[in-house]
C-alpha cells in the first residue's frame, strides 16, 4: 500500500477542475493519444473510455493530482491503474472476456465492482498483462519496421533523443516515425468498437 499524499502536496478539487478546464486543444489531443496507448489491448475500453474514467476519479477526489506533477503524468498513472483493475476483472470476473458478447462497456461500470488494489505491482499477473499490451501494440505496428523498433526501444527504457541516436535517426526522421505511430494508435478504439 502506498503512503497517502500529504494534503498540501495535492491539488484541491477546485484546482483540479481549473486545470482540466484550462486544457487547450493540443492538451486534449495529447491526453487522448496517451489514453489510446494506455488502452491498447484492453477489451471493451476505448482510449476515450479510459480517459473519461481517469477524469471521473480525479473529479470524485478518489485519485489525487500531486501539485508538482504534470497533467499527462498524472493521467498516465491513473489510467494505468484503471487498466490494471480492468485486466483483473476480465480475468477473474464472471464473464469470459474471450467470448464476444459486447465490447461496449461504459466507463461508469468500472466503479461498480470491487476495486482491487494490489500490495505490490510486481505480481506475475501484472507482468503478463503488461506483456500482452505490448504484444498487442507490436502486432499493430509489425508492418512498419521503424515504428516497431521505436516501440521496442521505448519498452526497454530508452527515450527521446537517446532512442533516436540508438536507431541512427536524425530528429526529422524521429519525428516522422513518432507521428506515424500516433496515427497507428488512432484506429485502436475504432477497431475495438467495430
Amino acid at each position: 500500500m502506498k503512503s497517502p499524499v500529504p494534503e498540501d502536496e495535492r491539488l484541491s478539487p477546485q484546482e483540479v477542475d481549473a486545470r482540466l478546464r484550462a486544457f487547450t486543444a493540443a492538451d486534449w489531443a495529447k491526453a487522448r493519444s496517451l489514453a489510446r496507448l494506455a488502452a491498447a489491448g484492453l477489451l471493451g475500453w476505448s482510449g476515450d473510455d479510459l480517459l473519461t474514467e481517469a477524469l471521473t476519479r480525479l473529479q470524485e477526489g478518489r485519485r489525487v493530482w500531486r501539485r508538482d506533477v504534470h497533467a499527462l503524468v498524472t493521467l498516465k498513472m491513473i489510467m494505468r491503474s484503471i487498466a490494471d483493475d480492468a485486466f483483473k476483472k476480465q480475468k477473474y470476473g464472471p464473464i469470459d472476456a474471450r467470448v464476444s458478447v459486447s465490447t461496449d462497456v461504459v466507463a461508469d461500470e468500472a466503479a461498480d465492482g470491487p476495486v482491487v488494489e494490489a500490495l505490490s505491482d510486481q505480481s506475475p499477473e501484472r507482468e503478463v498483462d503488461s506483456r500482452s499490451q505490448l504484444e498487442y501494440l507490436e502486432k499493430l505496428v509489425e508492418d512498419d519496421e521503424d515504428c516497431w523498433c521505436l516501440v521496442q526501444l521505448w519498452a526497454e527504457g530508452s527515450r527521446g533523443q537517446e532512442a533516436a541516436d540508438q536507431l541512427g535517426w536524425d530528429p526529422k526522421k524521429h519525428d516522422a516515425v513518432r507521428q506515424r505511430l500516433l496515427r497507428r494508435l488512432q484506429p485502436l478504439q475504432d477497431l475495438r468498437k467495430s
Binding site: L34, Q122, R126, R131, L134, A155, A163
Partner: peptide, 19 residues
Amino acid sequence: PKPDAFDKLLDAFVEELQA
C-alpha cells in the same frame, strides 16, 4: 513499483508528448 516494459513505454511516450 518496479516499472515493467509497458510502463517504460508509456513513460517514454509521455515524454514525447510533452516535447
